[in-house]
């Protein structure tokens, strides 16, 4: 059976780097991998997602609904949305704990979930959720590196060693932000 990873966040958070790093790390680790971005360039401030499938029996690139072994999210509400749609019972959710309110919440028409609510709802789905939080960052897109660090530390993806993730991050991070990204990654990995 393929190992399915569903990644999601809000347009502008730089999910591309997160998804590309993990997919490249899988390829470098020699795993049969397929990946797919579903957002194109046009999802200003909306939901964005990427899919990664590891294993020879995954012929298509999109993770089937309700069959993600791992949901990685860059934002709290999106973690819940991703889990509701994609998580399989027994799966894990790891998300960076930042909150971007959608219009409906800002207009007081909808509720924004708390960390505890996300944890509880994911448990009701038969899964397990963990929030990641790091200190102040110059550029919030570096939250990607913190999330990658936790993925590496927890060994959440079978067959991808932590060192490979770090190696790929070092190659893919924008040169001007390389040192900061690596520092954030290592701190999260050591946590």
């Amino acid at each position: 059976m393929a190992f399915n990873i569903y990644l999601c966040g809000v347009g502008g958070q730089g999910i591309g780097l997160l998804a590309a790093s993990l997919a490249q790390a899988a390829a470098r680790a020699g795993l049969p991998a397929r990946a797919c971005d579903t957002h194109g360039l046009a999802q200003r401030g909306g939901v964005v997602s990427s899919h990664i499938r590891l294993g020879a029996d995954a012929l298509t690139p999109l993770v089937p609904e309700g069959e993600a072994d791992l949901v990685l999210a860059l934002e709290r509400l999106e973690a819940l949305r991703g889990a509701a749609q994609y998580l399989k019972p027994g799966g894990r959710v790891l998300y960076y704990d930042t909150a971007y309110q959608p219009v409906s919440v800002r207009a007081a028409q909808a509720h924004y979930p708390t960390v505890e609510e996300v944890k509880k709802e994911v448990e009701e789905m038969g899964g397990q959720a963990e929030a990641v939080k790091a200190g102040e960052m110059r550029d919030p897109r570096m939250q990607n590196a913190a999330l990658l660090g936790r993925v590496a530390a927890l060994g959440l993806i079978p067959g991808i060693p932590a060192a490979t993730i770090e190696e790929i991050l070092a190659e893919m991070a924008p040169p001007a932000a390389l040192e900061e990204n690596l520092a954030i990654f290592r701190a999260a990995r050591a946590q």
Partner: peptide, 16 residues
């Protein structure tokens, strides 16, 4: 077999 789950508050795309 799949359990139906409720989706949280929608997030529509918006201008930057």
């Amino acid at each position: 077999e799949r359990a139906r789950r409720e989706a949280p508050a929608p997030r529509l795309p918006q201008m930057c």
